[in-house]
Design a protein around this nucleic acid. Structure first.
Lengths: 356, 356
DNA sequence: CTGTTAGCGCTTTCAT
DNA sequence: ATGAAAGCGCTAACAG
């Protein structure tokens, strides 16, 4: 167990000063080829791990990072992502950071366009994006590319853009997993209802499309023939949902299972509970407060979690470490798909990974 | 957004020097009641969060921590716990730590006694224990109590001891969860096989007993009557296992599901695969390398993970922060019970939480 | 009992 | 282009 190697040690070994080593490590220039080579030779030999907390301590400049995501509601998915982002900021408490958050209505493409146009003009060092609308996101990304501002996606990747990285679950596999779980709960060859959200501008979110594809592919590969039925649903005009649901469950009173591939599973769970329909198995998505409650009450059977806190945390942390410490970045980052039930939900810590 | 408050700020507000504030913060004594009150008054007002990385930077003394657990095999449960411990050490890279690891044979009570007697005499600042044998563990703990050395359990708590904390899954609920999963996979009113490990000294590990109790309680609460059958199994004398298994599956050729409540599920999975028995559903425990492989091959249907890396990480981190920064400690810490399937295993990162 | 000082590893500034 | 020196927030050693 040898002692940890420090900049001072490298300097001594290379026959230069600590300042020069620092200049080499950070590519700050003003180093003669000879000195650079000497330092690089030493660096090859030793296992130098900079102590980034100490490093942050002596950093002078301030950084500005902009965050844009769908609007944040308490207890819901996007709030968790923002929690994670905030924690990453706290983990580097001695960095001088300014963070600006701009959110848009994820069910209204025009809201998104407006916010993204504003962001395109802002001063910043880096951008974190929670994308919803494919083309609008790519338009923003192009502007960022021109301005040489790095950006990272959370929640899902946006095909066609060149992010520094993305942190997302594998939505296709998420759909597959939901299909596997629901089919393990219901009889062979039966009906399955799936909820489908309607959006202003009539564009489905990319993630939902992928989930549905994963779901349908799994179903169609089974020997048993399930009949998948769509349940219409609108987040923006909730007054119609009662009607939609009631019509659906009247037409299909024998339906044994429902899958909800957005985070609104609790709407259906409540509907069923209020109408004393207790024999419908449910597999739902995201650990929003109401979904967790429905799980604990036994209204939902399986809930899939996508580690939103962790996504936000890693996105922010990765960005900071790239920006400030030039740490190399993995572009593709898929997070866990957690399976929660009545039995294990109690131990699920949202900040498991993050909190000290 | 106000600036972060530092010791120097507190000193100024209280009208004392930084040294005095430090003495108050760490209860080092040598502070007049008047000064102490002044500082404490300020501390009540402001939200002071010490930067522990900076703090570690200037710490002089070295700490010695002893770890004792069952023997470590590559790719298995206890190795993961040790990984986690090592990571916590790396997270506080600038602390001066000496770590000594002593392991024992978890299937042999005499091995455990010998190692624990040795530990009881060693010099150390703190101890982390992975317990197996209840009484032997408590004997060691009593010695530690006398010597005023704090200790933390990983993997399970040991009733009767007074640990600073424990990091464990809820073994009872783990059994319950396994019961729920296996019953969701097999027909009503059928047989279920469960594997039971035999130990030298004939003492079951506490965790296994709890798991089995959780399992049986769930089964007996169901309307459907399952018949639970025990499959004998020995880790220490593996040459008999083939016979045990073959006898069992011959006698019960119609068995639709098997649950393994220790980490050796892959033994059964391999046996079934080698003998071309493909219609037995399996719910197993722990993400050992061979279990994960069996899950990926479809031989195991559900695998339960107990976050061993996280347990080790948190145990070590908690100990360090208690020892060095006097950080208050939560005694009871239950970790997640992760449900893994063929679909989501690929995204499961053992060091999710830990790795930077 | 208390304030001052030096130093942890790193970055930045300032002479050279 | 480079080394020396100051300073980040904190603790430890020292002088009073």
């Amino acid at each position: 167990m040898q002692k940890k190697i420090r900049i001072k040690d490298i300097a001594r070994l290379a026959g230069v000063s600590a300042g020069t080593v620092d200049r080499v490590l950070h590519n700050r220039g003003n180093v003669s080829p000879k000195a650079r080579q000497a330092v690089e030779a030493v660096l090859k030999e030793v296992d130098y791990k900079p102590n980034i907390h100490v490093s942050a301590l002596s950093l002078k400049r301030t950084y500005k990072i902009v965050i844009t995501t769908p609007n944040i509601s308490p207890g819901e998915y996007w709030e968790s992502i923002h929690h994670g982002i905030r924690h990453a900021k706290e983990a580097y408490a001695n960095l001088k950071l300014t963070i600006e958050v701009l959110t848009y209505n994820q069910y209204d493409i025009f809201s998104c366009m407006k916010v993204f146009r504003q962001i395109a003009e802002m001063e910043m060092d880096a951008l974190i994006i929670g994308p919803t609308f494919h083309n609008e996101t790519n338009a923003l990304c192009e502007k960022m590319d021109e301005r040489n501002i790095p950006y990272i996606f959370v929640d899902s990747n946006n095909e066609g853009a060149c992010p520094l990285a993305f942190f997302s679950s594998d939505h296709y596999m998420c759909g597959t997993l939901m299909a596997k779980l629901i089919t393990s709960l219901i009889p062979a060859n039966s009906k399955i209802g799936i909820l489908q959200a309607v959006r202003v501008g009539n564009q489905s979110a990319n993630s939902t499309i992928l989930r549905k594809r994963g779901f349908m592919d799994y179903i169609s590969k089974q020997e048993r023939a399930y009949q998948v039925l769509r349940i219409p649903f609108s987040v923006e005009e909730p007054e119609n949902n009662e009607t939609y649901l009631s019509r659906f469950f009247t037409d299909h009173h024998d339906i044994p299972g429902v899958v909800v591939m957005n985070s609104r599973g609790n709407y259906v769970a409540s509907y069923l509970d209020n109408n004393h329909i207790h024999d419908v198995k449910m597999v739902c998505l995201d650990l929003t407060a109401p979904n967790v409650e429905a799980l604990k009450k036994g209204q939902i059977d399986f809930l899939i979690g996508q580690e939103p806190e962790y996504q936000g945390f890693r996105a922010m942390k990765t960005m900071l470490e790239y920006l400030i410490f030039k740490k190399p970045v993995n572009r593709e980052n898929y997070v866990q798909l957690d399976i929660l039930t009545l039995e294990n939900i109690g131990f699920y810590k949202r900040f498991n990974n993050i909190l000290s």
